[in-house]
Every structure is written in structure tokens, then in C-alpha cells.
Write a protein that binds this DNA or RNA. Structure first.
Lengths: 146, 146
DNA sequence: TTGACAAACGCAACCAGGTTGCAATAATGA
DNA sequence: TCATTATTGCAACCTGGTTGCGTTTGTCAA
């Protein structure tokens, strides 16, 4: 069973409807390897022949976020992106020049820091985000030739 | 000499003008303990009797960023905030409920991770952001009483 | 002190991401 | 097939942020 079907089945079992938008959106998310913005999703769906209003996409993203199936990713440009949740825990490397996003997996010990902070602050810390940004090898190359 | 005067002197020595807006903005930044949004700065300046157009504030923020005196901070709500640069290296704790921001200082070893990533990826990593978000003790309290 | 020059400014118009209210549509279970 | 209601589209709106351009104002030298 494809990953998107697993998610659809789960939604169905909770009594949610399996709409055209919802199916297409989960399909797209399952095929992506890096976080995307909502307006990009509108365009991607359109390219697949699924014409959806931006309002619907925003509402669907909020829905999928509540359902724990996608989550927000914030990178150095301040725009909101979304990616499939329940993936292997990872972080992002963002090129501030070409805006490309790649992923990195860090040692668990780094993530353990949030436990230390939780104890220190009294915060009931629910998440953390460790994002790195710089200039990727390709852009760096181009820059030196200028 | 006040911190803001040090910065003004530095700008002056580089040939930049010391305008009303610039002085007021640096004063405000030096008195703050957490990152602020541009629209908040417009309001804060107005409250001090310094009426400045939002365009000016955005341009001034870009200027101070280029001059290395302030930098952007991204938190879990995706809005752009600014804070004084050249402070002790620290990270932020953001309450997703009341939007309060507090700061935490982490062990250097965590920051050393960016070196490891730089080697791994070929990225010329110029910065990182480690932000934690959750629900602060006050909001947590309120929530349990509901 | 004055005047010239360019940096800095205000304004209006604009753009993009994101939200809201409401009426219309469509997925579901009976 | 029908009733119910979750989901959708639309239009209007909001906010953060940007741009072009004509005006103001710091600065420095005369």
C-alpha cells in the first residue's frame, strides 16, 4: 500500500472525507523530498490537473497539521513551508542564494538538548527547529567566478 | 558611553548620517531584551514621539543589518523579528500560545555541530538557528484550569 | 552661516502570503 | 436516491513587506 493510501485510510477511519483535494495533496506530499510553500502547492496541483482554490489549500494544510500528518518548516527566508510529518527526524540546510533546501540528519544527542531546556525553563517544550543556512557549493562556485 | 552611542559613533566613522530615526531606533534596540517585528518598532517609535513611516523603518532595518548591527530572528510563527547583533550567542524559547520570547544560552558544543555539517555538506555555512517552541509555564497553568 | 550634495525620508501604490464569511457543492451513510 | 454536513470557491480583506519618485535634511566645505 502506498504511503498516501495509509494516510487516507487513517483519515477515513476517523470519519473524515476523502476528497479530490485531500487525495491529490497527500499524493504530492508523499512524492516530495523537501518542504514546500502553500502557493507552490496550488501550482503543483494545477499542473496535475487539480484546480484548487488557495483558500482550500490553506484550510487543508491546517487540517492535515491538526491531524499530525504535515508540519511547518521555517527557513532563513521567513516563509512558511510544509512537509510530511512522521519522517525520520531531520533538519534542513537552506541555501540563502538559490533557496534550495536539503536535509541533514544529526546525532540524537543534539536533540536531547531540548530536554535540558525543558527542565531549565519550565517550558513544556513540544518541538525544536535547528536550521542551518549558508551558501551551497554550486552557488559558492558561481560566486567565485564573478 | 551608552551602547547606542558606541554604535552611532561607529556608523559616523563610516560616513553614515546620524538621523533622528537612526538614533531612536538604536536606542530602542539597546533597551530591548527580546526580538521585535518591524511594525512593532513603528509603534514603539511613535510612542516615543518619533513618527516614522514604515518604509523608513524597513529600510533602516536593512541598513543596520548590512552594517552588522542587527539581525533577523525567525520563530515558530513565521514572522520576521530583529534583535541587536553582537550579543552573547544565544537561542530563543518561543511560547506558541502567548507569543512571549525568552532567551537561552546553550553549551558551545551544540554550536560546534554547524562545523560538522559544513564539512559533511560542502556548504559554506554562515549561520544557524536553533529555536525551541512550546507552551510556557504561565500558559500551561491557564490551560489546565480550563 | 550658508549652500550644495547625497543620504535619508514620506507617500502612495503595489505585491504576496494568508484569513474570513457565506453561499454552493459534493462525499458519505442510511 | 436522499439528507446531512464536511468541504469548497469566491470575493473581499488583512498584514507584512517593497518600489518609484519627488522632497527633506544631515553633513561638510566655503
Amino acid at each position: 500500500m502506498a504511503q498516501s493510501d495509509v494516510l487516507l485510510t487513517e483519515l477515513k477511519s476517523h470519519g473524515y472525507r476523502l476528497t479530490r483535494t485531500r487525495r491529490a495533496l497527500l499524493d504530492v506530499f508523499c512524492s516530495l523530498t523537501c518542504p514546500v510553500q502553500a502557493p507552490e502547492l496550488v501550482a503543483m496541483l494545477a499542473a496535475l490537473g487539480v484546480l484548487v482554490n488557495k483558500t482550500t489549500v490553506y484550510r487543508e494544510l491546517a487540517f492535515l497539521e491538526r491531524a499530525g500528518m504535515v508540519h511547518r518548516v521555517l527557513l532563513a527566508d521567513g516563509l512558511t513551508r510544509y512537509e510530511l510529518a512522521r519522517q525520520e527526524h531531520h533538519h534542513h540546510l537552506f541555501c540563502v542564494r538559490c533557496k534550495a533546501v536539503s536535509r541533514v540528519c544529526l546525532d540524537d544527542s543534539i536533540c536531547a538538548v531540548s530536554d535540558a531546556i525543558r527542565r531549565q525553563s519550565g517550558f513544556r517544550t513540544i518541538a525544536h527547529s535547528i536550521e542551518f543556512f549558508g551558501i551551497c557549493p554550486r552557488c559558492d562556485e558561481g560566486e567565485r567566478q564573478e
